[in-house]
Design a protein around this nucleic acid. Structure first.
Lengths: 133, 133
DNA sequence: CTCAGTGCAAACTATTTGCAGATTT
DNA sequence: AAATCTGCAAATAGTTTGCACTGAG
């Protein structure tokens, strides 16, 4: 339930926050850039400033509600945190993003970190290429 | 041999290019940001403009001489292309970067791409955490 | 001599911040 | 009413570009 997430994060329930969360939760699309979210809201008749979008996304990330990705290119992409960790395949031509998860890779990462005396906190694995659709 | 690399890339042999290539080849450090390279050159008495550094790095990347990384944070990092593919572990506190390579992970990536009908062109795997040194 | 390369400053893009007014609790 | 939040415009940071001049081949 949207509003609870906000409350738990210590954030007041405001229109921009509700709308952004709703967009992320209900859209078939899973990954959005800040500008993209801004445009979607405007098209949906919700008037917000781009600055607010950035601020809200930053707060959501801090609250653990969403995850921020730094794929190739210059802009960041956000997606709802659904609790299931996964990695990404990015189509360099179409921008299409598909998620995947592989236990073997996950385990190897943990082992590698251990071998190097490295305290693994997070990781990012992204495959770039093209879907043969 | 530096100058051959430049010639093969169709780039004229100029001071900025030679110096940047030399810095990347001879430093113990393997990863540099653009600004960092700029500073190193200035300190070394080589006067160049930051714009030239960016231009040269872009050309080097296009020529396959160097690789550009987009780790967390806002600036890109460059390293010499030594032909040996590897991934990275980044210390979130110190910024220290260590390279590693794991055949098991490499193979899994190829299999996963195949399963998804994805033509894998490149990939990026980075572990974030802290070294227990 | 010719064309690629360079430095400088201005332009850009994505993102952030200051501030006065608006909204939530 | 108090504190948080928002929109706007101005400010940043990293990177790119236009242009006249310099230097490599």
């Amino acid at each position: 339930m949207d509003k609870n997430d906000l409350k738990e994060a210590g954030l007041k329930i405001t229109k921009p926050r509700i709308e952004i969360l709703k967009l992320l939760e209900t859209s078939e699309k899973q990954h959005f850039g800040a500008e993209e979210i801004y445009q979607e809201l405007l098209v949906g008749g919700v008037k917000v400033g781009i600055a607010t979008v950035y601020r809200v996304l930053t707060q959501f990330e801090a609250a653990g509600l969403i995850i921020k990705h730094n794929f190739e290119g210059d802009q960041c992409v956000y997606e709802l945190e659904r609790g299931e960790h996964h990695d990404h395949m990015v189509d360099l031509k179409t921008g299409k993003i598909v998620e995947f998860h592989d236990e073997i890779i996950e385990q190897r990462q943990i082992e590698i970190a251990k071998e190097h005396g490295f305290k693994l906190m997070e990781h990012s694995l992204t495959l770039y290429g093209e879907f043969k659709d």
